Every structure is written in C-alpha cells, then in structure tokens.
Amino acid sequence: MNLASLCRLLALAALWGGSFLFMRIAAPAWGAVPTAFVRVVLGAAGLLALLALVRLRPAFGGKLGAALVLGAINSGVPFLMFALAAQVLPAGYSAILNATTPLMGVVIGALAFGERITPARVGGVLLGMAGVAVLAQAGPVALTAPVVGGIAACLLATACYGLAGFLTRRWITQRGGLDSRLVALGSQWGAVLALAPFALWEAARQPVATWLQAGPTVWGAMLALGLLCTSFAYVLYFRLIADVGPVKALTVTFLIPLFGVAWGWLVLGEVATLAHAAGGVLIALALWLVLWPAASPAPAPTPSAAGR
C-alpha cells in the first residue's frame, strides 16, 4: 500500500470512527430518528452534488429498486440502530461493536447463502463474541437494561451490514454491476425513504421547529456526520477499493475502534479502560482470523499466465 492509499485509509478510519462521536453528541439532543434521518438526507444530498460535479448521469440500468432496498438494509436500519445506541452507550463502545461486521457476515453467509465456513472463521466468530462479552461485562458503563439494549442495537446494525454485502453481490454484482457511486447514491435515497415514515411520526410528536432550535454544536455534529462521515467517506472508501482492492480496504475495520475510543476520550472525556483494550484486541484477533486469506497451493503455471 503506497503512502497516498495509507493516508486515505487513516482518513477514512478517522471519519468513520468520528461518526460515533457525532452521533453521541446529536442523538441525546435530537433523538434517534431525527439524527438518523437528517444524516441520510445530508448524505444523499452530498452524493447527488458529487455526481453533478463529476457529471455522472444517474442511469441505474434497472437496478434502482435493488439499490433503494439495499439502502434501507445497509444505511437506514444501521444508522437508526447506532443512533439509538448513542443515547446510552459511549462512542467507544459503539465503535468497537461496529467491528463485528465481518463476523456477522461469516455467520449470515454460512446460514443463508451457502458460504463455506472454515475452522479459522468459527474461531473468529467465537473470539468476537468473547470480545463483546468482555466489553459488556468489564467496561466502564454499568450493565443496565438500556445498555444491553444499546449493545443489541449495535449488533443488529452490524448484522444488517453483513447481510447487505451478500445482497449487493446477488442483486448488483451478479446482474452486471453498477458504478459504485450510483450504488452509494441509490442506497442513501433508499435509506431516506425507509426512515421518512418514522421521521414524520417523530415530527408529529416533536415539531420540526424544535430540531431547528438545536445549538451550533449539535448542528455541527450533524453536518459532519452527513457530509464528512457519509458522503465524503464513501468517496474515500470507493477510491481505496479501486486502488488497493476490497480485502485491504477492509482493514479500515481494525482502525475504526481505535479512532472511536480516541475521539470519545479527547472530545467527550469518556473513560478509556483496560476493558476497551481487551475487548478491542479480541475483536481485532477475530477479524484477523476472518479476513486473512486461507493458504492454498500455488497453481501450476500455464502459458497464458506465464506471459502476464
């Protein structure tokens, strides 16, 4: 990985780690639904502006419906779940729990999509579960019912991320593919449509005027969450995939918890404890087992391969 790609990787990890900080600022003030809804609206608007800037025509080739449904699964539900968790969990907790996404992918792939599950992946899932348990039991936050609910919300979000990866392959990739920026745009608008009924219901209970009265700190957090951590982060992520491939791009998952805990400690004064370190290390080891490619014997060279 060259220096430019490494800088993009670190910037992406800092942005996605920072998303948990911004949700921790906004969600207690606004509530979970407004936080998630405004985030996807800003994210969709930012991506639409990007497409206009690069003059990319939004031609979905019959895959718009799939992209919209993927948005509900890959953005709408997870963003709402993380916003719910942000009302009760420190930012560092949510960032560490977010790292279970590849583990959820292993379980969902084996149960629903016929994916081969290796002993290393089984070990990774078990280690990841142990990491979550350590964080829950030994962390600085008392294990109350709301905290358990927040942890469950984070795990539901990562399960949605894991499911969306397989559905993207089935609905988009195996049907001829689609420009990743269009997938991102369609998914964000799908999330807007999925969350709109909840936002309308929330607006009936809590008039939108009260959202507009939020202080500059909350609005700054929301703008950063929607434009930086969603729109701009997508641009970095897809550029990283193009430059270094999806497997190396996934190593951002290892760095997000580090930034999430660090931002919470620096900005919000959240306590960083040995439980964060122990839970994070166990989940990092689990990710290594899941993401590390299995060794396979090198194929015999063929004339066509030898000429490359």
Results as ranks from 00 to 15, higher is better:
98 N>F: 10
64 L>E: 05
63 K>D: 02
63 K>M: 09
59 A>I: 08
57 R>G: 07
97 L>F: 09
105 G>P: 01
76 G>L: 13
95 A>P: 00
56 L>P: 00
73 I>C: 06
73 I>K: 07
121 R>M: 14
63 K>L: 15
80 L>R: 08
82 F>P: 00
106 V>I: 12
66 A>D: 02
81 M>D: 05
60 F>S: 09
114 G>R: 13
105 G>S: 01
75 S>Q: 15
62 G>V: 13
113 F>H: 07
89 L>G: 03
60 F>Q: 07
60 F>M: 09
93 Y>V: 04
85 A>L: 12
103 L>K: 07
82 F>W: 09
66 A>V: 05
74 N>W: 11
110 A>G: 13
106 V>F: 04
75 S>G: 10
78 P>M: 13
116 R>E: 13
106 V>N: 02
77 V>N: 03
77 V>R: 06
114 G>N: 11
90 P>S: 10
90 P>M: 12
85 A>R: 08
70 L>M: 14
108 I>L: 15
91 A>N: 03
85 A>N: 08
72 A>N: 06
56 L>Q: 13
94 S>W: 00
119 P>E: 02
107 V>G: 00
71 G>M: 09
116 R>I: 08
96 I>V: 14
91 A>K: 05
56 L>M: 12
89 L>T: 02
75 S>T: 14
109 G>T: 04
72 A>K: 08
58 P>W: 12
87 Q>K: 15
90 P>Q: 11
101 T>Y: 04
99 A>N: 12
121 R>E: 14
102 P>F: 08
61 G>M: 07
74 N>H: 15
57 R>N: 03
97 L>M: 04
80 L>E: 05
67 A>K: 00
91 A>H: 02
80 L>D: 03
112 A>R: 10
99 A>R: 05
82 F>L: 13
111 L>M: 08
118 T>Y: 11
87 Q>G: 15
76 G>Y: 14
84 L>R: 14
73 I>V: 15
118 T>L: 15
65 G>P: 08
106 V>R: 03
75 S>L: 14
75 S>N: 15
97 L>G: 01
62 G>M: 12
74 N>D: 14
96 I>S: 01
120 A>P: 00
111 L>I: 06
90 P>Y: 10
73 I>P: 01
95 A>I: 04
110 A>V: 08
103 L>N: 08
88 V>G: 07
116 R>F: 05
74 N>T: 10
71 G>H: 09
83 A>I: 09
93 Y>E: 01
103 L>M: 14
100 T>L: 09
113 F>R: 05
70 L>S: 10
117 I>E: 00
89 L>I: 06
73 I>W: 05
91 A>P: 02
110 A>W: 14
72 A>M: 12
87 Q>T: 15
105 G>H: 01
85 A>V: 11
69 V>H: 06
77 V>I: 15
97 L>D: 02
58 P>G: 10
83 A>V: 06
63 K>Q: 15
68 L>N: 06
96 I>W: 01
90 P>L: 10
58 P>M: 10
